[in-house]
Design a protein around this nucleic acid. Structure first.
Lengths: 196, 196
DNA sequence: TCTGGAAGTTACAGACCGGTAACACCCTAG
DNA sequence: CTAGGGTGTTACCGGTCTGTAACTTCCAGA
């Protein structure tokens, strides 16, 4: 998908989709609203009729990202219905695939790096969405019958987060190549430990 | 250290130190050269007499950060001379301490998130410095007699990187609180495995 | 066919950005 | 005492940024 996507849909949807893409590629402060609206095939006034401000647009983009990620989680359940352990392994494979898909890190992490004001409205949203993601991974580990589900989930998520950062700094041929091995090893190790 | 640091030292040093501090706190694109020079108690012309451009200043800041980090590594050797395993544990403790010191992530990772142009001059420097850091941690693991030194070093560094991101997104009370437990567990586990 | 709302257009405000020119100053080394 | 380099000051350039005002165009539904 290039920057100049202009499918025929409602302007609000086009703006949101284009902004998501451009924020991801160029960063939040690296993209102006003019560039977004132009790439979306519309204009600045229309953007400000649908979004209160650029900050509001940022937040809507983050929520849209989370919704898309949530839909991806659902595919694990449809792919391996009931088999939570298989779903956990699917998560590992999916995460690894994302590492090789693009060299940009997590949009929420990148946004947090850019929006440094402690009371920026987007920060609350980022925290809320990240915590929801964590709950989901913890639940998956627990339902997979792993003893220390929280600890495994947190370890896996820190590993993945770190891997995304690593891809962004040293490239996809760095330490992140070992992500699957690390993650699978952890799962084996946690499954070996007595559930208590 | 506030933004208004003005010790009596040479202007170039004041600019570099102030820029490091402000880039760290507010991000690179969140700080203008005017703000830096004013906080450093000097002026824009003096900045441009010592640095070719803002990009050049950014790179010098990154290098200065790396130099400071390198000095920290040296303290491990002086603190536990010859005892590489103790130095590795010291690294874990130091890393954990950094997680609670400030809520901003790694300056290099943040810079990589902000400077999205693939050929930005700072990206080469970031990669170079990150690879040097990795070499150092791998060397420490190897000298500590750990079998799969590269894998342990990469795992530890991804965990740490992820923990710093986590602090930045959900705060210091999130998954990052488990960092020491994760890291120590990994070291034990790798030491248990036969060296080969 | 008429009408009302959504969308497009142009221009602008006010602020900030990185970077430069021209000139005045001050302090130290000789 | 003097010369010269480092520093400070002011003004400016062209560009970009978010956000708004006033107006026109278009199109779907009644």
């Amino acid at each position: 998908m290039t920057d100049g996507v202009v499918e025929r849909s409602r302007p609000r949807d086009r703006i949101l989709e284009t902004a998501r893409d451009m924020f991801h590629k160029h960063g939040i402060k690296g993209v102006g609203v003019d560039a977004i609206t132009e790439a979306a095939g519309t204009n600045k006034m229309t953007l400000y009729r649908h979004f209160e401000s650029k900050d509001d647009l940022i937040i809507e983009c983050l929520r849209a990202n989370a919704a898309k990620a949530g839909a991806m989680w659902d595919t694990f359940e449809t792919e391996f219905p009931g088999d939570k352990l298989a779903q956990l392994h699917a998560w590992v494979r999916k995460a690894a695939a994302m590492l090789n898909t693009d060299g940009r890190g997590c949009d929420m992490a990148n946004a947090a790096a850019e929006l440094t004001e402690p009371d920026h409205p987007a920060r609350l949203v980022i925290k809320e969405l990240k915590e929801a993601q964590r709950e989901r991974l913890v639940g998956l580990c627990r339902d997979a019958g792993i003893g220390q589900a929280e600890l495994l989930a947190d370890t896996l998520s820190l590993l993945f987060e770190g891997a995304r950062v690593s891809v962004q700094t040293v490239g996809a041929e760095g330490p992140s190549t070992q992500f699957v091995r690390m993650a699978e090893g952890l799962i084996v190790s946690f499954r070996g430990a007595a559930a208590g």
